[in-house]
Amino acid sequence: MRVLHQLLQLRHMREFNVLIALILMGLLISLFTPYFLTVSNLMGVSRAFSLTAIMSIGMVMVIITGGIDLSVGSAMGLAGLITALCFDAGYSQYAAVAAGLGVGLAFGLTNGLLITAIGLPPFIATLGTLSIGRGLMYMITHGVPLTPQTPESFSVLGQGYVGPVPVPVVILLVLTVIFTIIMTRTRFGRHVYATGGNESAARLSGVKVQRVKLAVYVLSSTISALAGVIAFSRYLSAEPASGFGSELEVIAAAAIGGASLAGGIGSVLGAVIGAALIGEIANGVVLLNINTYAQQAITGGVILIAVSLDVLRNRMGGRG
């Protein structure tokens, strides 16, 4: 009884809808193919979506403050590229990774200062840095991928396993736990929600909203940079187009996971499950031999259905 009761309580969680969608979609795919529900396939799927999911953790925090970060793909790509350049120049792997993450930090500071100190709308500020990052990448690579020599130990980050679980997935899980705790249990997390819920009420209550915003943009870019470093470690090649267009998938993950672009609402866990759902669909499309061009359309449909359900459910709740 107790267990049943607790399971029923889960129904009230914001992540419930998208979790159900994830499970139903999994069952649906399994109906048509026996290859979906296997450990090796699920691990492969997880590794495939882990980068989007990691980036969505940063994105959802930005979205909860009422902002948006369009530059995550550029931060990711540029971080991978700078890491590669460092290896090329003969720096140690630690220095290379630190440089990659440093790029993310710089990216985030730029975004954050444009938004807080100058007062640019987040959409414009991050659209600008998106282009700048992308341009820099082409200038540096001249369009040619960079494949430097790297030590064996570095590739663990993107290619290794802990037991059956790929390392990127382990990193994802750790980040999910850490940021869920930050967002639900700490003062910083509370301030992030308050800033997005009603910025002027938060400011008048003593929340340093500008600092909160700066922090979430720095976190978002740095987390994306980490994704970029992992991506480079996986392919050991820094592509000039790496991360291109990924912001849309990352924003979609957050939205599917229940985040409201108006701010104040959303969760890290929801965003991660949202990314998982997108990854699952991509995998299903491949396994079922559906035209891969259809994947985008299906993902779009799922976004609309998931977010509509969420909106409708909230409206019912609100009306009693």
Partner: peptide, 25 residues
Amino acid sequence: LVLGMSVRENFSLTHLSDYCSLDFV
């Protein structure tokens, strides 16, 4: 007020650090 937040969260927003150790609420 932050209308979408609970009574508790609105109440404590002005003095959240009173209930925090480190940064944990």
